[in-house]
Design a protein around this nucleic acid. Sequence first.
DNA 1: CATAATACATCGTATCACATAGTATTGTTA
DNA 2: TAACAATACTATGTGATACGATGTATTATG
Lengths: 102, 102
Amino acid sequence: MDTQLRKGILDVCVLMAIKNEDSYGYKIIKDLSDVIKISESTLYTILKRLEEGEMLIVRSTEYEGRIRKYYHITQVGIQRIEEFKKEWGEIKKVYAFITGDK
Amino acid sequence: MDTQLRKGILDVCVLMAIKNEDSYGYKIIKDLSDVIKISESTLYTILKRLEEGEMLIVRSTEYEGRIRKYYHITQVGIQRIEEFKKEWGEIKKVYAFITGDK
DNA sequence: CATAATACATCGTATCACATAGTATTGTTA
DNA sequence: TAACAATACTATGTGATACGATGTATTATG
């Protein structure tokens, strides 16, 4: 998929990946792989961004001797998903224009 | 609409705006305004980019004493629109994931 | 005569996806 | 047991894109 088209939707995909259950980096990539491929560099950048935007909180837990960071969605994060759904309405309108379905 | 979501679709919108009939900067903005708002700075950046990508050709015509640039879509430009339509299939899949329509 | 509308151009900035590279541990397999 | 894949996270640099701000110049309108 075109890089530009991914912009703005990857964040929301990551939020969806942790919405129902706290998750960690590697698992998020695996879970999303069927829907959309995200490289590690991209994901960890997104996670940091989402943390700064207070859309998730991080909990470092020890798992089998190594530290694993669990990401937990916040209310702001959930709101972000809802906002995206609204924005999608506009995007669909644009797509209808492009395809000529008017 | 979120800036990031616009990335990648604005180009195609501009191509659509000149697809059926050659047009010029100001008219393109007006014609698209119902569907998607594009500022002048953004549009002229896009037009230049599309020209460099050989998706359109430019013809400077004199109109009422002033030079007006008419943009004409090329075969490459038409192909770009078709590619976008294909990519849309993937985007819809991602959206289905986000909304939970699976 | 001032203001809006028309028409195009340039510069700088912020955001984002991503390649590349590095660190470190655990599990597997030849 | 040495090599390698898989797991897990971090840091740096780059290119593409949208867009605000600003500037120029003409025509139409009130």
